[in-house]
Simulated assay, not measured.
Amino acid sequence: MDGHEISDGVVALRRWSTDDAPWYAETVSADPLIQQFTAELPTVTAEDVRSAIRGLLAKPTDAAGFLIADADSHQRLGNIALTYEEAVGDVSYWLADYARGRGIATRALRLFTHWAHTVLDLSELRLWAQVNNTGSRAVAERAGYLRDPERDKVREVKDESWSTVSYVHRWTAPTVT
């Protein structure tokens, strides 16, 4: 998170700004799919989000995240983030309803995955999707993540038990000869 933007010419990942907080809070609280398939709470406020963004911008050593945006218009499209320990990171993402179905999540996950492996030097990225979240599962597979059924489990999310499926992306740094 060096203050730069990561882009493939269609999708851009950029650092969060506290100015993004109202959009984030409004988007997650009003979107039924975000509420159904993520741990985002419907009661999140812009101030809650501003506080989280300030923490992220303070350059923590165990978390990273970007706003997903349109590379040309800069329209806000979603969120992608991870927490990590040692060389392993746990990835999460969501898109606003108007951004879905255009390949944006797959592009964002590919960009983010490459960034996490090369900049943070993470050797393994994992993600979990609710078993019924076919959209997120397809995004993971299109972005090169492999099913990791040994890590499937029931998770407690928002006071509910969710059956989740696991995906993994492993990286071996290229050797220099």
Results as ranks from 00 to 15, higher is better:
107 R>V: 08
79 N>C: 14
100 R>K: 10
153 K>S: 09
4 H>E: 14
37 F>V: 10
24 Y>A: 04
164 T>W: 04
74 H>Y: 06
106 T>S: 15
57 L>N: 15
23 W>P: 10
56 L>H: 10
71 A>G: 13
62 D>N: 15
146 L>C: 08
104 I>Q: 04
131 V>E: 14
14 R>F: 13
78 G>W: 07
18 T>A: 09
78 G>A: 09
108 A>I: 08
54 R>I: 13
142 R>L: 06
99 A>D: 11
14 R>T: 15
90 D>M: 13
27 T>E: 08
28 V>Q: 09
160 E>I: 02
62 D>P: 01
32 P>A: 11
144 G>W: 10
127 L>P: 07
131 V>I: 14
81 A>E: 14
133 N>E: 04
82 L>C: 08
106 T>G: 12
127 L>A: 06
70 D>K: 12
176 V>F: 05
96 A>K: 07
121 D>K: 14
143 A>R: 05
56 L>F: 13
46 A>C: 07
27 T>S: 13
175 T>G: 00
41 L>C: 01
175 T>N: 01
2 D>I: 11
41 L>A: 12
35 Q>F: 04
55 G>C: 06
14 R>S: 14
52 A>L: 09
79 N>H: 15
49 V>S: 13
131 V>T: 11
161 S>A: 09
2 D>E: 13
100 R>C: 02
111 L>F: 03
149 P>D: 08
22 P>L: 07
24 Y>E: 01
113 T>H: 06
124 E>Y: 00
141 E>Y: 03
76 R>C: 03
114 H>F: 08
83 T>I: 11
71 A>E: 14
122 L>C: 04
75 Q>L: 08
89 G>N: 03
73 S>W: 04
72 D>Q: 15
54 R>S: 07
86 E>I: 07
37 F>P: 11
142 R>P: 01
122 L>V: 04
25 A>I: 08
18 T>K: 06
167 Y>T: 01
160 E>R: 15
96 A>L: 07
25 A>N: 06
39 A>D: 11
170 R>P: 00
132 N>W: 00
82 L>W: 06
161 S>F: 06
84 Y>N: 02
140 A>S: 02
68 I>T: 12
129 A>I: 02
156 E>M: 09
77 L>N: 08
173 A>Q: 12
152 D>W: 03
53 I>L: 08
102 R>N: 12
143 A>C: 02
161 S>D: 06
63 A>S: 15
106 T>R: 05
46 A>L: 08
114 H>D: 07
147 R>S: 11
22 P>S: 11
162 W>D: 01
26 E>S: 15
8 D>Q: 12
160 E>W: 02
34 I>D: 02
86 E>R: 14
101 G>R: 12
118 T>D: 12
2 D>G: 14
59 K>W: 09
16 W>V: 05
138 A>Y: 00
177 T>Y: 10
56 L>N: 09
53 I>N: 09
51 S>G: 04
11 V>K: 04
56 L>M: 15
166 S>I: 00
34 I>N: 02
74 H>P: 00
77 L>T: 10
115 W>Q: 05
33 L>I: 05
32 P>I: 06
21 A>K: 05
135 G>V: 09
154 V>H: 05
